[in-house]
């Protein structure tokens, strides 16, 4: 990259950089992390920039935030190509690729209204099993419904 093309986003001191998000999905990532901008955290969102691996990608930098396991699982469902960099004192201290877990519990709802997991007051969480990575498909362990990637995204983002 030529120096004059470098993006004008400053480094963060401590926090998380989520890189290699498929272009156009950065706002979904913020949404599922519950970041609205009103928390007072410094957040940088970079969208549709060139990427060797993906052609185009999005990047999200969030200061003072360390991700929980559930957050990483959710990100893997929205952005299966994402890498997560933990930053301490301006340095990358760990870098990892997300991976879609074989089983997911309670992260999103089954789309089938007649599924036991959607019945009010019953004490149980949704449970899904990975049946295909590409395209992403997950099967409800209770009613058997197979959720497509689009349906999962809609459930996760409420969109």
């Amino acid at each position: 990259m030529r120096r004059d093309e470098r993006l004008l986003v400053s480094k963060i001191q401590d926090g998380t950089v989520i890189d290699h998000i498929p272009a156009g999905n950065a706002l979904y990532v913020l949404k599922i992390l519950g970041i609205t901008g009103r928390e007072g955290l410094r957040v940088a969102v970079v969208m549709n920039v060139e990427s060797k691996k993906l052609g185009k990608k999005d990047i999200v930098k969030i200061e003072k935030l360390e991700l929980k396991k559930d957050d990483v699982n959710k990100i893997s469902l929205i952005a299966p190509t994402a890498t997560i960099n933990i930053i301490r004192n301006y340095k990358v201290v760990s870098k990892s690729k997300v991976s879609v877990p074989e089983r997911i519990e309670g992260l999103f709802s089954c789309i089938n209204p007649r599924c036991i997991t959607n019945q009010p007051r019953e004490p149980l969480k949704s449970k899904f099993r990975l049946v295909s990575l590409s395209p992403l498909k997950m099967q409800c362990e209770y009613c058997g419904y197979i959720m497509s990637h689009d349906e999962i995204l809609r459930q996760l983002t409420g969109g």
Partner: peptide, 9 residues
């Protein structure tokens, strides 16, 4: 039961 997955639960 008419609800799907009720038996597993």
């Amino acid at each position: 039961h008419s609800i799907e997955g009720a038996a597993k639960f």
